[in-house]
């Protein structure tokens, strides 16, 4: 029920390679910046194509160079929480949350997730008016509501001011404990990872 990833990709004069089989729960990728952690997440999400290898999540093949399988990002259902939030600036918080929910995004789920993330009072706001922490909660909610088969989190605390990090970290723990989704979590902070992750994979340059 976890990840089965084996990818290689050259980016300029840099080579990124990762082999990883992880169980359910949180798998953390740690390593210095520039080592290609975000590129790995992008490959899983379908935003960057590996030169070779394969990517499987929870028994479904998303990419396999040898078998010529390459699902487009829109069909991979990777709930991606980006480092920079990437809320849609022209949509209010509610519309951002509903963007990936489609017609089957039941109200039950919506109310439950909004309550869990504590963002009910933000639904009518524009993203530009949110603090870093608020924006990241909405981004997490948006990913959860897109009925994902996995979650990708790219340094979700980096755009949150230090005083609010504990809050978001607790939230992520709650998400981890409340959902059966495998989570691939990128960070350069070892303490954060030790607290969250079931498996840790260290990337070196």
């Amino acid at each position: 029920m976890g990840f089965d990833i084996d990818v290689r990709r050259r980016l300029g004069d840099r080579a990124i390679a990762l082999r990883l089989t992880g169980g359910p729960g949180v798998t953390a990728l740690v390593g210095p910046s520039g080592v290609g952690k975000t590129s790995i997440l992008n490959m899983v999400a379908g935003l960057l194509r590996p030169d070779e290898g394969h990517i499987g999540v929870a028994g479904t093949t998303l990419f396999d160079a040898a078998r010529r399988i390459d699902l487009p990002p829109s069909r991979r259902r990777a709930g991606y929480v980006f480092q920079d939030g990437r809320l849609f600036p022209h949509l209010r918080v509610r519309a951002n949350l509903m963007f990936g929910a489609g017609r089957n995004g039941g109200n039950m789920d919506f109310d439950r997730i909004v309550a869990m993330l504590g963002i009910a009072h933000l639904l009518h706001r524009w993203p530009a008016s949110l603090s870093g922490g608020e924006a990241q909660r909405v981004a997490i909610g948006r990913a959860l509501l897109s009925s994902p088969r996995l979650l990708l989190m790219d340094e979700p605390l980096s755009s949150v001011d230090p005083a609010r990090r504990e809050e978001i970290l607790t939230l992520i723990e709650r998400v981890r404990d409340a959902s059966p989704l495998p989570i691939l979590y990128v960070s350069h902070d070892r303490a954060e990872v030790d607290r969250l992750a079931d498996h840790v994979v260290e990337l070196t340059g």
């Binding site: 935003l47 990002p73 829109s74 069909r75 991979r76 259902r77 849609f88 963007f99 948006r142």
Partner: peptide
């Protein structure tokens, strides 16, 4: 890209 990962 973000919209694509959300299924669009």
């Amino acid at each position: 890209d973000a919209a694509a990962t959300l299924g669009a």
